[in-house]
């Protein structure tokens, strides 16, 4: 049973997050180990296995990056490759972003700049998701794969920006 089938959803990059969240809760109400505390050992183990699977399926589908990679895996495409022939324009852009982050750190009032930076990254992520949605709809897995790699870059960048924010906040005691 693939993760989409777990929630009785069609295999697609576009999913309704409310629907999947509701089905996730309905399933956990049935399989969660708390419902089997007084059951014999075997049923308790079974419940833990099922609840683990449901959690894994939900985690994977909830997030666009892992959902996209999972869709590729369902197509038999190897996603753990280290082949990173990214287009040079994108890589240049990433380097510039990183330099910008270093500059923001040195500003005397970094918060507004950092916030604007985060907003820009989030906008890019949103655009990338829209593109991915189209590419998956057209079964253009090669392009989707390239864009998912870009997605990983952006997520890492976003995390770095958030860590910087935390660092700056904590420095402000």
């Amino acid at each position: 049973m693939n993760y989409f089938e777990v929630f009785d959803l069609p295999v697609s990059f576009d999913i309704d997050t409310d629907t999947i969240a509701e089905r996730y809760r309905d399933l956990q109400r049935v399989v969660h180990p708390d419902k089997y505390v007084n059951a014999p050992d075997r049923e308790r183990r079974l419940a833990m296995e099922k609840a683990t699977q449901v959690n894994e399926a939900f985690q994977t589908l909830k997030n666009p990056l892992s959902r996209g990679l999972y869709l590729l895996q369902l197509q038999g495409i190897e996603t753990h490759d280290n082949h990173t022939a990214m287009d040079s324009e994108f890589l240049m852009q990433q380097m510039e972003y990183r330099e910008e982050l270093v500059e923001i750190k040195q500003l005397s009032h970094p918060f507004d700049a950092l916030n604007a930076f985060l907003n820009r990254i989030e906008r890019e992520q949103k655009q990338l998701n829209d593109t991915l949605s189209q590419q998956f709809a057209q079964n253009d897995y090669q392009s989707a794969h390239d864009n998912l790699r870009k997605c990983q870059f952006l997520i890492r960048l976003h995390e770095e920006a958030l860590s910087l924010e935390e660092e700056l906040n904590n420095g402000e005691l």
Binding site: D8, R23, D26, L27, R29, V30, V31, E43, K50
Partner: peptide, 10 residues
């Protein structure tokens, strides 16, 4: 367990 899951989903 499978029946309960099936019912929860359908």
């Amino acid at each position: 367990m499978d029946t309960a899951i099936h019912h929860a989903m359908t």
